Measured scan of single mutants.
Amino acid sequence: LPHTAVCLVCGEAGKEDTVEEEEGKFNLMLMECSICNEIIHPGCLKIKESEGVVNDELPNCWECPKC
Rank of each mutant, 00 (worst) to 15 (best):
P2Y: 15
V6Q: 03
P65Q: 03
G11W: 03
E51L: 04
G43L: 03
V19A: 10
E63C: 10
C61D: 03
H41D: 09
E38C: 05
G24A: 12
T4L: 00
C10R: 03
P59W: 05
K66S: 05
E20L: 08
M31A: 07
C36A: 01
E23Q: 07
V54S: 05
E38D: 05
K48Y: 12
E51W: 08
P59D: 04
G11P: 02
D56Y: 13
G11L: 12
S50K: 11
N37D: 11
N37C: 15
W62S: 03
P65A: 08
C61T: 15
N37E: 12
N55R: 11
P2T: 15
G11C: 03
G52S: 08
T18F: 09
K48C: 07
E16F: 03
F26T: 08
K48G: 10
E49M: 11
E20Q: 09
P65V: 03
E20M: 14
E51Y: 07
K48H: 09
L58Q: 09
D56Q: 10
N60D: 07
M31E: 02
C36M: 02
G11F: 10
E22V: 10
E20T: 08
H3Y: 05
C10T: 06
S34N: 10
C10F: 00
T18P: 06
H3G: 15
L28E: 13
P59T: 11
L8S: 05
G14A: 04
L28A: 14
E12V: 05
E12C: 08
E12I: 04
L1D: 13
N27W: 07
P65M: 02
K48L: 12
C64I: 01
C10V: 00
C67G: 00
E22Q: 13
E57G: 10
F26Y: 06
H3N: 14
L8K: 14
E12N: 04
G52P: 14
M31Y: 05
T18K: 08
E21L: 05
E21W: 04
K46S: 14
E38T: 02
P59M: 07
T4Q: 01
V19S: 08
D17V: 09
N27Y: 07
I39N: 13
I47M: 14
S34T: 13
E20K: 14
H3R: 15
L1A: 07
N37T: 04
E22Y: 05
C7T: 03
I39E: 06
N37F: 06
E49D: 07
A13F: 11
V54Q: 14
G24Q: 09
L28M: 15
V6C: 15
G24P: 03
L1K: 04
L8N: 05
K46H: 03
P65F: 04
E38R: 13
N60S: 08
I35G: 08
D56W: 04
G43Y: 11
H41K: 06
I35Q: 08
K25Q: 06
E57F: 09
D17P: 08
G43S: 04
E22T: 14
C36N: 01
V53I: 10
E63F: 04
C10D: 01
P42N: 00
V19T: 12
I35K: 10
D17N: 11
N60C: 04
H41T: 01
E16T: 14
C33L: 01
K66R: 08
E32Y: 02
C33Q: 02
C33F: 00
A5R: 13
L28K: 14
K46V: 10
G24F: 12
C33E: 02
M31Q: 02
L45E: 03
K25S: 05
V53Q: 14
E57H: 11
A13W: 06
C36K: 02
L28C: 08
H3L: 12
N27F: 06
P42Q: 07
G11S: 09
V9A: 11
L1M: 13
L30N: 08
G24K: 10
E21S: 15
V19G: 07
K25P: 01
E38I: 09
V54T: 14
G14D: 11
G24V: 11
P2G: 15
C44M: 01
K46C: 13
E12L: 12
C36P: 01
H3C: 02
W62H: 01
I40Q: 07
C10Q: 03
K46W: 08
K15G: 07
P65C: 04
N27L: 08
C10K: 09
E21N: 01
M29A: 05
K48F: 10
E20C: 09
F26W: 06
E49I: 06
A13L: 10
I47K: 08
S34Q: 12
E20H: 07
N55V: 06
L45Q: 13
G52M: 06
V19E: 03
P65N: 00
C7L: 01
G11K: 15
N60W: 07
G11N: 04
E22G: 11
G52W: 04
E22I: 08
D56I: 01
V6D: 05
P59G: 10
L28P: 08
K15F: 04
C44T: 00
V6M: 08
P59N: 15
K25T: 04
E57D: 13
E32S: 12
K46N: 14
A5P: 12
E57V: 08
G43F: 02
K15N: 01
N55S: 13
L58F: 00
E38K: 07
L45F: 05
V54K: 09
G24Y: 14
V53D: 10
K48P: 08
G11T: 04
N55P: 06
E38Y: 02
I47W: 09
C10M: 02
I40C: 10
A5Y: 15
H3Q: 11
N55T: 09
C44N: 01
C33G: 02
P2Q: 14
V9Y: 03
D56H: 15
I47D: 06
M29L: 06
S34L: 04
E49V: 13
E12P: 03
I40D: 01
M29D: 03
L1R: 07
C61R: 12
G11Q: 14
A13T: 11
T4C: 04
L58H: 14
H41M: 00
K15S: 06
E21A: 13
H41S: 00
T4F: 09
L28G: 10
T4K: 00
L8R: 13
K15D: 00
E22K: 15
P42V: 04
L28H: 14
C36V: 00
L8W: 10
K15R: 04
P59E: 15
I35Y: 03
A13I: 14
G14L: 03
P65W: 04
E20I: 02
K15Q: 04
G43P: 03
L1C: 15
K48Q: 14
H3M: 15
F26C: 03
I40L: 08
E16C: 02
C36W: 00
V6K: 14
C36T: 00
E63K: 14
K66Q: 03
L45R: 11
L1I: 15
S34H: 11
E23T: 11
G11H: 04
W62K: 05
K46T: 15
A5V: 02
C33N: 03
P2E: 15
